[in-house]
Amino acid sequence: MLGLIKKDLLMIKGTIKFIGIFAIVYSMVAVMEGDLNGVAFIPALVCIMMMTTFSYDEFNKTDAYVTTFPCGKKNVVKAKYIATIILFIASTLLSIILSSAIGIINGDFDFQYALEIALGTAIGVSIFQCLFYPAIYKFGIEKSRIGIFVIVFAIVGVGALIAKSGININFLKNIEIFLDNYGIIIIPIITIILWSISYWISARIYMKKEF
């Protein structure tokens, strides 16, 4: 299984360089502008990079090939999830370090704020990946990509409608207060639960899949 984790990481090593360049350029801009929100893009970009590994696998029919490895079908899925989680943790840590460093350089270091940005993005990216990995295993990356666009636009559309309709969204304030107090504990727990459920569904789909 370790070989398969390495496979996914090696596939995106070229784009990891791109993330590095992005982080350096953004840091310089953020130091000048004093805006930290851009670091949230790092986990989001890494998430997109991981999606491309599915495309490469599909294009080269790699799933059929790796099924011949002595590791079992379940471990093929497990490897994909572990590679994703490794990148997810690394990119979240990177965004915390970067926003802290930018804050220190600018003289307005606020660790709580840096943590909020990182964890907020983390939960968003997690929900996205946990939702779509089973879909990709079921329908393939091409069909799922269309689904991703439809759902993202639907969410944005619903959000815009709610904002325009004047519905009272004060309850969001309560959620925000709750997360301010307990987010550091709750968000990792929710993330672990989401990943576990997503993996369980994906593994069941993959075990039944034929190539």
Partner: peptide, 8 residues
């Protein structure tokens, strides 16, 4: 026609 991804 089945092998590891060709970007490797």
């Amino acid at each position: 026609d089945m092998f590891l991804p060709e970007v490797l």
